[in-house]
Amino acid sequence: MSELIKFVEQDLDADRRAAFPSFKAGDTVNVHVKIKEGNKERIQQFQGTVIQRRNQGTNGETFTVRKISSGIGVERIFPLLSPNIDKIEKLREGSVRRARLFYLRGRQGKAARIKEKIRSKN
């Protein structure tokens, strides 16, 4: 990629990118999304497990969050750098061995749990 393209993407995205915590598949996040209703704007929260991050490092990067809402699995794909994303909170770090956790779709209840990552001291 041309140096100039990198320069422009850096210029436009670096601030937003830096504002988000680093997270990856298996982590539990709470995404604050701006929703427009007429001329009113409000914030909606979507809390769940990140099951994948796509096109990392590009300005078209997206991530998928999965949650179980009243017994039904719901997945939502967010563009990382979209101005509609107000805030991303990382609530829990998961310990997983895969980058894409599609196997969670076929699991329910206890089987769909993800172990918390144990951080060594220091």
Binding site: M1, L4, I5, N59, P83
Partner: peptide, 21 residues
């Protein structure tokens, strides 16, 4: 012409853009 990238507009739309020196 340098190449293409994309920019998010204020309402969250991703707009394809071309860079020109």
């Amino acid at each position: 012409k340098i190449g293409m990238t994309s920019i998010y507009s204020a309402d969250g739309q991703q707009v394809a853009c071309t860079l020109v020196e």
